[in-house]
């Protein structure tokens, strides 16, 4: 054994420990960030950013990791929101129940649609996700007695958490709802980050780069992609449920194809190669949306222009740009 490789083998435990410290640091940074967020902006906006952050992270599991360009994720966000909202509006306010309903309905719908389309590739897959989004929109739009149709599902109440011994806890206050959203947001960031680094995530990434080779290595790629699709749908469903709780209404716009486009914007604006990217994209998007909609009723025009400009000049997204700058600075430092 040469000295170098000896040194390398001894370095491994410390590298591992370093990685663990780094992961811990990241977790603390995330917790600190969600604690600071409501101090610097209205709590509604902060809540919405975290909700859309969850939605965008789930979408990025498909787009960034698996390379499945889904343009119909609003269907799952909407169905989760409508399912939870229906229960909340009809007197079933138990928190675990409504969260489960949102998770299950989003996941189930994704399993049904995904089962039909997951083997279709490329353009075909994209068009199908869009078409199924339209189908779900159309069903919700027409099923007036349950969904409220064009007016959206109104009268959604905030859930109640019944804890044994401690008593029941309601989320009527916006700060307590923010706490709930924080917990679910951090939970999903943790779970999704683990998934991306797990063998499951690695196989998905391999299939993104070369699907045929990954299949020939013996991985059952479509089944794994379907699993990713279902997970993304379920998490999006929970995000939708939280959105309904926040504004006490589930608007029909939330299932519109434009909403699917918006979440893809968030992913692309932020950057697809990290967990943080989509969240930052969501924050920028929600912030811009608020700003533009105050300035002009035709704000989607400005949003569209913004997206075109970003795509032309900053294709790697904001996080991509930051890390590029960072790497360049490090290289420059190394040279000196």
């Amino acid at each position: 054994m040469t000295e170098e490789s000896l040194a390398a083998s001894q370095a491994i435990p410390s590298v591992k420990a370093g990685r663990r410290t780094f992961a811990l640091l990241k977790a603390f940074a995330a917790i600190a960030a969600v604690c600071v967020l409501p101090l610097v902006m209205p709590i509604n906006i902060a809540t919405e950013i975290l909700i859309y952050g969850m939605f965008a992270m789930a979408t990025n599991l498909l787009i960034g990791t698996a390379g499945l360009f889904s343009f119909g994720q609003a269907a799952f966000f909407g169905v989760g929101g409508y399912a939870a909202g229906y229960f909340l509006a009809h007197g079933w306010t138990s928190l675990p129940l409504v969260l489960f309903m949102a998770f299950a309905s989003g996941g189930l719908l994704a399993a049904m649609i995904g089962g039909l389309i997951i083997r279709r590739l490329g353009i075909y897959f994209m068009m199908l996700t869009f078409a199924f989004n339209q189908l779900v929109y159309y069903v919700i739009y027409s099923w007036h007695s349950v969904t409220g149709g064009e007016d959206g599902l109104a009268g959604i109440r905030r859930p109640v958490l019944d804890l044994p011994l401690i008593g029941s806890f309601s989320f009527d206050d916006n700060r307590s709802l923010y706490g709930l959203v924080c917990v679910l947001f951090l939970l999903s960031i943790g779970v999704l980050a683990r998934l991306v680094q797990s063998p499951f995530g690695l196989v998905l990434a391999a299939a993104r780069q070369n699907s045929r080779r990954t299949i020939s290595l013996g991985y059952h790629v479509p089944a794994l992609q379907l699993a990713a699709y279902v997970i993304a749908g379920a998490v999006s469903g929970v995000a939708g449920a939280l959105f309904g709780m926040l504004y006490r209404i589930m608007p029909i716009d939330s299932v519109h194809w434009a909403a699917s486009a918006y979440v893809v914007f968030m992913v692309v604006i932020g950057g697809q190669r990290s967990m943080l990217g989509p969240v930052i994209g969501a924050a920028v998007f929600i912030w811009l949306q608020g700003l533009f909609s105050l300035a002009w009723t035709r704000w989607p025009l400005l949003l569209g222009l913004f997206v075109i400009i970003i795509m032309t000049y900053l294709p790697q997204g904001l996080v991509g740009l930051a890390s590029q700058r960072w790497m360049r600075a490090i290289k420059r430092g190394a040279r000196v």
């Binding site: 893809v264 914007f265 692309v268 989607p300 569209g304 222009l305 997206v307 075109i308």
Partner: peptide, 27 residues
């Protein structure tokens, strides 16, 4: 312009363009 930045960029650009056109119609 977006074609240099990859496939997804082109798609997202088209979505953005659709938004712009629809809003211009409303204006």
């Amino acid at each position: 312009p977006a074609s240099k930045s990859g496939y997804l960029a082109q798609l997202v650009t088209l979505f953005g363009a659709a938004l712009v056109i629809e809003q211009m119609l409303l204006i």
